[in-house]
Design a protein around this nucleic acid. Structure first.
Length: 423
RNA sequence: GGAGGAGUGGCCGAGUGGUUGAAGGCGCCGGUCUUGAAAACCGUUAGACCCGCAAGGGUCUCGGGGGUUCGAAUCCCCCCUCCUCCGCCA
């Protein structure tokens, strides 16, 4: 969310941004609403000021044993007026709030313009694609043959877009999560294990609500949703707090399951486990001072990259264009890993600086030495999506016989050097 | 799930309808003193919003929401959170 005064004074800039992002925002409605709201507030505050003054006078007269009946009956009328105007002000306030909550973040000056992924810019590449003297198989074939992934039975348990890992497949998933967390904690990120269910206030604070309710699972009869990403939990743990400035930047990481309804994704990536209703992710998160957030974004990306490098997976870093970024992000880098069966790069991590957008919604501040409190900047990045790393390893490390080599860094976690072709 | 208790400013803690945005203490920040520091003393110390070029003025906020009243931290109703005991449970 944006600062109301800033928004009002820079409307042209926001109108331009909305055009660039393809966001439909009714600026005319805002102007009307904003004007009316301020008129009503000004009027009601004048009445309240009058009431407060009269209240003091009534108290004074009563103490002095004088009669205050005339003032009392006069104020009765004023009080009714206030009640009415206050109701109207509350309505307008709520409408304005809803409007402001639906305005996406402004892209940083370094973000390439463009409405969609076609305008994204490749920043760098690492490694080379593995060479095969056979046709590489997709992970669902390899997984099924090796007995480490059972999608038909997952469908029996829960339905399409759910997975059931088995044996060394389950172990690989667990090994990856442990490996990621071990690296992050060595790099100074504090490990958290948060709730997987989150409330409406938390989702609103990060920008997931009110606009993206359809992309999540909601519990019946409770104000709880299945978390779509632990970015929600890690942001919200400090909601309504003023952080100790000396502690910034604060670095956190967490392993959680993530749940997405993938509404509107029908027909996309239906084979395999690339796009699931439930997947695991290790998230990296930072709370920083405003002046250091872009520097911290670069190091966040490098922290994510180092995981792929240690795993020996070929990848590229892509900077997202304005129109391809998430609602809350001011600048985003995606890490895309090479998938040999499809012969394409696919997203495995997304690292964003949200600047003060989430901090303002969530009221997360810090106080500079001797100064007024300010909003922190929040950054998040996957480090990494575990399920997608799983399938990247299976595909990139496959051998002709259908067995899968275990990357060296994972062997201590796996206890084996290779996943055999049949189990 | 049942019974009881509690939620006040960065923290502790007063306050049961009328200069209480809130005593007092602690902490923090600034200053005086000091070669420096400590101590002592003085001062400051939340956020949001509205009017205003500004200076400044005003409104709201005592877990959240609603109500009673000219006026509510103080009275009433609903909800939330925490604590204790019971039940249940991994």
């Amino acid at each position: 969310m944006h600062d109301l005064n800033y928004f009002r004074e820079h409307l042209a800039q926001f109108e331009q941004m909305a055009g660039g992002r393809g966001a439909a925002i009714d600026f005319a409605a805002f102007r009307t609403l904003d004007r009316e709201r301020r008129e009503v507030i000004t009027a009601v505050e004048r009445l309240k000021s009058e009431r407060n003054r009269a209240g003091e006078e009534i108290a004074r007269r009563k103490r002095a044993g004088e009669n205050a009946d005339s003032l009392l009956s006069e104020m009765k009328g004023v009080s009714d007026e206030i009640k009415q105007a206050d109701g109207r002000a509350a309505e307008l306030d709520a409408s304005l709030q809803q409007f402001m909550l639906s305005v996406p973040n402004l892209p940083h000056a370094s973000v390439p313009p463009g409405r969609d992924a076609a305008a994204n810019v490749e920043v760098r590449r690492w490694g080379v694609p593995p060479q095969f003297d056979f046709t590489p198989r997709p992970h669902w074939e390899l997984g099924e043959r090796a007995g480490i992934l059972d999608l038909p039975r997952a469908a029996k348990i829960a339905g399409a877009r759910f997975s059931l890992y088995r044996g060394l497949g389950a172990r690989l998933e667990r090994a990856l999560a442990n490996f990621f967390l071990d690296v992050h904690t060595r790099n100074g990120y504090t490990e958290y294990l948060p709730p997987f269910l989150v409330n409406t206030a938390s989702l609103t604070g990060v920008g997931q609500l009110p606009k993206f309710a359809a992309e999540m699972f909601h519990l019946e009869g409770a104000d709880l949703w299945l978390t779509p990403t632990s970015e929600v939990e890690l942001t919200s743990m400090y909601r309504d707090e003023t952080l100790d400035a000396a502690l910034l930047p604060i670095k956190a990481c967490a392993w959680t399951a993530c749940f997405r309804s993938e509404a509107g994704a029908a027909g996309k990536d239906t084979r395999g486990i690339l796009r699931q209703h439930q997947f695991q992710k290790v998230e990296m998160f930072k709370f920083t001072r405003p002046e250091q957030s872009y520097e911290e974004l670069e190091s966040l990306v490098r922290d994510a990259e180092s995981l792929l490098q240690q795993l020996g997976l070929h990848y590229r870093v892509v900077q997202l264009a304005a129109g391809d970024m998430g609602f809350a992000a001011a600048k985003t880098y995606d890490l895309e890993v090479w998938l040999p069966a499809a012969g394409t790069f696919r997203e495995i991590s997304s690292c964003s600086n949200c600047e003060a957008f989430q901090a303002r919604r969530s009221a997360i501040r810090f106080r500079p030495k001797g100064g007024k409190s300010e909003f922190v900047h929040t950054l998040n990045g996957s480090g990494l999506a575990v399920g997608r790393t799983w399938l990247a390893i299976v595909e990139n490390y496959q051998r002709a016989d259908g067995s899968i080599d275990v990357p060296a860094v994972l062997r201590p976690y796996m206890g084996v050097e290779r996943i055999p072709p049949e189990q």
